[in-house]
């Protein structure tokens, strides 16, 4: 099974972190010496609860924040040293995609494609991608303010596709999608993987993670507590594994529910 081309030594990972740590000003250690890598053609799913460090990791890749220690690397570029060069190689879909509400989908796509350095797309190209992500044609010229959450999510994914970057960061991408759209999205991700993109996604959704990921990393309190290859997951009960590592998370979840009761 291990052919020379597949060994980590010869393939440079598209996205990697080395000893990546982040301590916020308030003293919270959000990320504690994280090491992970995503190769081209791989989907890496970070599983974990709120505060596990998933979004912090993504923010570090995008250099929205500077690391306290270590580094995030995209295609060999250390992100906090050359953020602009790194960001040219990353496409990003946020948890809750928000676009310009007064622009139509096409206008939003055009604007963000230009920012991504893609200036030669035509209106047909945009429409094709929108159709591909499952957005009906009659919606293309509507302003985004009339869009539902799922439609906005699809637009966000279209923007990421259009950027045609080798690395893709997805922050809870399926959170606003209905089951059918979720399914379509999984297919889309698999297509992108087959095109050779390296995809790093954060998710709560164990089911989807198991379905699509090549590697699943379970995070808790800023630490990568387990990392399983797709092969290792076959037959493994991921839910059980997750709960095992996530006792801390379950506690916080319960607390959060308590809090919301008192607030309401």
């Amino acid at each position: 099974m291990t052919t020379p081309e597949n060994t980590p030594e010869t393939i440079q990972p598209m996205m990697a972190t080395r000893n990546l740590s982040k301590r916020y000003e308030d003293g919270v250690l959000a990320l504690d010496s994280l090491d992970l890598s995503v190769n081209p053609g791989q989907i890496y799913a970070m599983l974990g609860g709120n505060g596990a460090g998933k979004t912090t990791t993504i923010n570090l890749f995008l250099n929205f924040i500077d690391p306290t220690e270590g580094e995030a690397i995209v295609d060999g570029i250390i992100t906090h040293q050359e953020p602009l060069k790194a960001k040219a190689k990353i496409a990003y879909v946020s948890e809750n995609v928000m676009l310009y509400p007064n622009f139509t989908a096409l206008q939003n796509l055009d604007y963000f494609s230009h920012l991504g350095g893609k200036t030669s797309y035509s209106a047909e190209d945009y429409q094709k991608v929108l159709l591909r992500v499952g957005l009906q044609e009659e919606a293309h010229d509507k302003k985004l303010r009339s869009y539902s959450k799922g439609m906005r999510q699809k637009c966000g994914i279209a923007i990421a596709i259009l950027k045609d970057a080798p690395a893709i960061l997805l922050d809870e991408p399926t959170s606003g999608l209905d089951p059918k759209a979720g399914m379509e999205f999984i297919n889309l991700l698999q297509d992108l993987r087959d095109e050779g993109k390296a995809i790093l996604m954060s998710t709560h959704d164990i089911f989807r993670a198991k379905q699509v990921a090549d590697i699943v990393g379970i995070m808790n309190a800023g630490k990568l507590v387990a990392e399983k290859q797709r092969e290792e997951l076959v037959g493994e009960d991921l839910e059980k594994l997750y709960v095992e590592y996530m006792t801390g998370y379950m506690d916080t979840a319960v607390q959060a529910t308590d809090a919301s009761v008192t607030v309401g």
Partner: peptide, 14 residues
Amino acid sequence: EQGTLKLTFANPVP
């Protein structure tokens, strides 16, 4: 607040 700032700076924008 809209979230577009994040999306914008996911691109190489100085």
